[in-house]
Computed example of a mutant assay.
Amino acid sequence: MFFQRNNTTRDSVKRFLAQVLAQDCNTVPQAFSTDALIVCEAGLTPGRRRFPYRDPYLLMVSFGMGTVVSTVAPRIPVVRRLLDGMHRDEIFSGKGMHVLSQLVTMDDQFLAGPDLKFSCSQQDFTPCKPPRGLRMEVLQNSAIHSLYQIDGFRHALRYAEHSSRPDTIAVAGYLDNDLIGVAGACADSDDLWQIGVDVLPGIQAKGVGKSLVSELTHRVFKAGKIPYYSTSVANLHSRNLAQSLGYFSVWSEIYAVSDRKTPDQNKLGRH
C-alpha cells in the first residue's frame, strides 16, 4: 500500500492521516469527510497501524464530521441500530458510550476513550528552549533498551525489545545526572510514529516534558516521519503541551478492549 507521506504542511499531514485511518477502519479516506454514520467490516488491511487485533473488533473514528465505525460482520447491524439517528457528538458522549458498552460487555470487553489525536507538520512546529539545567540525551533503536531497566516511563516507552511497534527514538532528560523524564516515539506504522512522554512527579508543569517532546518532534521530522500524539479528553495539561508546540487536533477515537492477550506479531488492532 503506497501512501503519499508528506510532513511539510498541515493539509498534507491530514491527508496522510486520513489514508492511514482508512486502512485502520477498512474504508476509504473520503469516509471521514462526510456527516454520515458509516459502519464497515473490519479487516487486516495493509498500511494500518500495527496494533494487535482483538476479536470481536470495534473502532470508532471521527475527523470532526461524521463517524466511522469499523467492526466485525455480526456486530454491523446491531451497531447501526444502536447508533441510528445519533449525531457525532452524541456517539462520542456518554449516550453513545452507554449503548455500545452494553454491546461489547457481552464479549467481555470494555470501551476505551474517547482519545484525542494530535499531529504536527514542519510548518506548524514551534520548538521551545529547554529550562535551565536540563540536559537531554537522544537514543535510537536498540540503544533505547538501556532505559528499560528503569521503570516509571510507560507512557513514553514500550519496554519491549521485540515488538511490531518498536521504540525508535527516545529523548531522556536529566537534572544533576538524575533521570527525570523521557519522551519516546514508537513506530505504529512505517511512517507514522506515536509520541509519548513521562515526567517524574514534582517535576511536571516546569517545562521539562514540553522540552523533551519538542526535541523528539524535531528528531521525528529529521527522520522523515510524521508524529502523532494521543491524550485522554480530561488530560488538559497534555493537550496544552502538544498544542503549544504546534500540534493540532486531527481525529477522535473510541475502541473496544479486552483482557485477552493476542500475539502482536501476526495480528493488528489496538494494543
Rank of each mutant, 00 (worst) to 15 (best):
Q4F: 12
N7Q: 13
T8K: 08
T9P: 07
T9C: 05
F16Y: 09
F16C: 00
L17N: 05
A18T: 06
A18E: 09
Q19V: 11
Q19K: 10
V20S: 04
Q23W: 05
D24V: 05
D24L: 10
T27C: 02
T27Y: 00
A31Y: 01
A31Q: 00
F32C: 02
S33G: 01
D35I: 11
A36I: 12
I38L: 11
I38Q: 08
E41K: 10
A42K: 08
T45W: 05
G47H: 01
R48A: 15
D55N: 13
P56I: 12
Y57Q: 14
L59S: 02
F63P: 09
G64Y: 09
M65K: 13
M65S: 13
G66A: 00
T71C: 06
V72P: 06
A73T: 10
A73M: 12
V78G: 10
R80D: 08
L83D: 01
M86L: 14
M86F: 14
M86W: 15
D89G: 06
G94E: 14
G96S: 13
M97C: 12
M97K: 08
M97T: 14
H98A: 13
S101V: 08
L103T: 02
T105E: 15
M106V: 14
D107A: 12
Q109Y: 14
F110I: 05
L111D: 09
A112H: 10
G113H: 14
L116C: 05
K117W: 11
F118Y: 07
C120A: 11
D124P: 04
F125T: 00
F125H: 02
P127R: 01
C128D: 01
P130S: 10
M136K: 07
M136T: 00
M136R: 03
N141W: 10
A143M: 11
I144M: 06
L147H: 09
L147E: 02
L147G: 14
D151N: 13
D151G: 11
R154P: 01
L157N: 06
Y159E: 04
S163N: 04
S164A: 11
S164D: 08
I169K: 07
I169P: 00
A170G: 01
V171A: 05
A172S: 10
A172W: 04
G173I: 12
Y174S: 03
L175N: 04
L175D: 02
G181P: 08
G181E: 06
V182G: 07
A185C: 06
D190W: 07
D191N: 13
I195Q: 10
I195P: 04
V197T: 09
P201R: 11
G202P: 03
A205R: 15
A205H: 07
K206C: 08
K206M: 12
V208L: 03
S211V: 11
S214V: 12
E215R: 15
L216V: 07
L216Q: 01
T217S: 03
R219P: 00
F221R: 05
K222H: 15
G224V: 04
Y228L: 08
S230G: 11
T231S: 15
S232P: 06
N235V: 14
N235P: 00
N235A: 00
L241R: 05
Q243Y: 03
G246F: 04
G246W: 09
Y247E: 03
F248C: 08
W251M: 12
E253I: 09
Y255K: 04
T262S: 12
T262L: 13
Q265T: 14
N266H: 14
N266M: 12
L268I: 07
G269R: 01
